[in-house]
Design a protein around this nucleic acid. Structure first.
Lengths: 294, 294
DNA sequence: AACGTTATGAAAGAATTATAACATTGTCAA
DNA sequence: TTGACAATGTTATAATTCTTTCATAACGTT
């Protein structure tokens, strides 16, 4: 696995095809055939295997391997890796071309995962579901936030920051507060009063999260779940879900993507009514100044 | 939530994803994870292999195979075939170019900043100062952690996670606890007892942070500061500083890089004594199992 | 023609991946 | 608790895929 992250494409045409096209003239006959085939079928290359390409190009497996190596890939696996990256990165062509100073392999790998995770988040934040999530958080009288264990703090921070962007944000913890906030109206919302709950939960999923979700829906609140890529329970309760990839090869799962997603939500909510927001910020600053916290 | 104008291939959801989504609720935990992963990464499934999916989903290869068969495919090969068909039929648009998400300019810019910030962190984590920071956190009897305002939660999470990697980690908050932890020995450490403090602080810097830092040094503790790129005060007290870029163009500064840095620290500490760590994890798991939190 | 250089595929081997059989663990109800 | 049964991982095995080595063929150069 050669350094993947420094290779994100800037050009639309996948590098692969470019590279192949450029090199064809200098190739020996058979290899050129293979190259030609690959260029033409670049899209399907992911499904091919060295052998299958060889057969279709009418040559031997060995030749395919040789070409691959000549192109600078470490065999078929390497090529697939690159294609895959082309796909992820192709959707948002970002300039990541930096020469990063020497970083060891694990680090490289982790960094790559983190970047991928980030990209995934930004994709989701540009996707069709995003707007409804933001609306759910904006057009509501009260927003509740909850999170457990290893990301509880992140959830609390989220509620703090969201408070800077809008009114009536509360962090709740079923364990601590016994859900006093929700027992008001005999299990339902007051008329005309709209609420929503943002649950942040990662593996190992908290028993509490699912229970709370059910309760939330039963009482008529909107539900937004920010979770990791393995969360299988959320879709039973809502379709406003953000899946933040967390698998990065570290001792504990990474929470970077979740944080990024939450940051984006706060931003979007703030953007939703910029004027009100800047007023809020001002008031906040003057408050903190009086408190002399800083 | 199906908007007609979206450029997204919602309708195009391939059979595969449908099928998976439908069956997830009835699946056992691990298989559900795999299923979830597959649904989320349907686009890239073509490049994956049974083993690679297993790894990324954090389960064993066998489970993947079982799921595949449960879904009606004859193993990995069968699935790939189906994908290939879907693909050629244009259902899964693996095709890079158009029809992919359009991310607006701000987003692109923010994403770019975030990535840069990440890279900066990873560079620092490979630089010369890193080792001493890790040593400071490892070779010490007690680690204190503190953080304020908008990243207080992050700091708390860090202390929770660090607790999984080593003993005697405590979150302190001068305001809340009045520093009871530190008034023991008339302002100094007991002999032979080594302690260190990790302060996490971002702009606008908390008055408390600097005071605490001074106190910390005066009493003979090591000090690590994780802060943003503007932090001006930390270098007066220590040279173990991580600067996590936070300027990203969002309404509030981004905390992604800080979180990444903290994740890396936890990992490095865990790595420092892998055996002890895995034992700790085990004990933790059995504890949580007894508590039935999950 | 003699020679070296490059191109190529065959066969053997190494590595990876998929499947099957078995063992362990966890879960739930009596 | 205990026992039955489902879930999951382990080990072993088979199948596939990739790489290496080597012998031969093709080509051009002197």
């Amino acid at each position: 696995m050669q350094d993947a992250f420094s290779k994100h494409p800037q050009v639309k045409q996948p590098r692969l095809v470019e590279k192949i096209r450029g090199i064809i003239p200098q190739l020996p006959k058979q290899e050129a055939r293979v190259a030609q085939y690959m260029a033409l079928n670049a899209k399907y290359l992911g499904f091919e295997t060295g052998a299958s390409i060889a057969k279709k190009a009418g040559t031997s497996e060995v030749t395919v391997g040789r070409l691959l190596r000549r192109l600078g890939y470490k065999g078929m696996a390497g090529l697939k890796q690159e294609i895959k990256i082309d796909h992820t990165a192709g959707t948002l062509d970002i300039n990541t071309e930096q020469d990063t100073t020497e970083i060891n392999t694990l680090m490289k790998h982790v960094l790559d995962s983190e970047i991928q995770a980030l990209m995934s988040i930004f994709e989701q934040a540009s996707g069709p579901g995003w707007a409804s999530i933001i609306q759910a958080v904006c057009n509501v009288d009260t927003v509740f936030v909850s999170g457990y264990q290893s990301i509880r703090g992140v959830a609390e921070d989220f509620s703090r920051r969201l408070s800077l962007a809008r009114d009536d944000v509360r962090f709740i913890s079923a364990h601590d507060s016994m859900l006093g906030e929700w027992i008001g109206n005999s299990g339902g919302l007051a008329d005309g009063h709209k609420e929503c709950l943002v649950i942040i939960d990662v593996v190992p999923y908290a028993r509490e999260a699912e229970v709370l979700s059910k309760l939330c829906r039963d009482q008529g609140r909107d539900l937004v779940v920010v979770s990791d890529e393995f969360c299988h329970w959320a879709s039973d309760y809502t379709d406003m879900i953000i899946h933040a990839p967390s698998k990065s090869g570290l001792f504990l799962e990474s929470t970077g993507a979740i944080v990024a997603a939450l940051n984006l939500i706060v931003h979007a909510v703030a953007e939703n009514d910029p004027q009100a927001t800047s007023q809020r910020l001002e008031r906040w600053q003057s408050m903190t100044r009086k408190l002399r916290v800083f």
